[in-house]
């Protein structure tokens, strides 16, 4: 299934930061939503800011419009405030993109566990993200750092405990 761009993507002024505050607010909301759905569709977990600016997200070749660096930074900052983005380095050149926040992933995983009556059992992280049982679940194929963050969120809610094995990690659900 190919990615369906929102209507704004072909609307030339979408690539100019709007001077009117209300309009800009709508514009930013639309951009944030576009970045998240795009990354989710292409299963992108990390973004390099320089690369991202050249990628199709911010660069519509068809209408010859490109979002300026300043605007890209504003959008990333907006995403960070919403809890969907985390900087990897201090220079803010690379970031983690979480199209679902850790708590949301945690909830999905916990739902699956309880639905299958597997609370009180122990899983390896690999089993959860790559096992046959979870093949149909949305969290199947989730990168390990993201999975770990989600389980940590569950741990805070006392619904799970992360256990360290020899060289890998496991988790027990309650």
């Amino acid at each position: 299934m190919s990615f369906e761009w929102p209507w704004q993507y072909n609307f030339p002024p979408f690539f100019t930061l709007q001077p009117n505050a209300d309009t800009r607010q709508k514009q930013l909301v639309a951009w944030c939503s576009l970045v998240l759905t795009y990354c989710r569709h292409h299963k992108i977990y990390t973004l390099d800011v320089m690369e991202a600016q050249e990628s199709p997200i911010f660069n519509n070749k068809k209408i010859e419009r490109k979002l300026p660096t300043e605007a890209v930074q504003i959008i990333f900052e907006e995403l960070r405030k919403k809890g969907n983005l985390e900087w990897i380095d201090k220079n803010k050149s690379r970031c983690l993109i979480m199209w679902r926040r850790p708590e949301e992933w945690g909830k999905l995983i916990y739902q699956w566990v309880s639905k299958n009556g597997m609370t009180n059992s122990v899983f390896t992280l690999y089993e959860l993200s790559n096992g046959d049982d979870t093949a149909k679940e949305e969290f199947h194929g989730l990168e390990e750092w993201m999975l770990l963050k989600s389980l940590q969120a569950l741990q805070l809610e006392q619904k799970a405990e992360i256990i360290a094995f020899n060289d890998s990690k496991g988790v027990k659900f309650f």
Binding site: P13, F15, T16, N20, T23
Partner: peptide
């Protein structure tokens, strides 16, 4: 028109800025 939120500004157009009306944007 910008102030009323009826128009959007596009500064990347060749030549001069264009003022777009989403209401009249046919792809929408």
């Amino acid at each position: 028109l910008l102030k009323e939120g009826l128009a959007w500004l596009d500064t990347q157009a060749a030549g001069e800025p264009q003022y777009w009306l989403p209401a009249l944007f046919s792809e929408l």
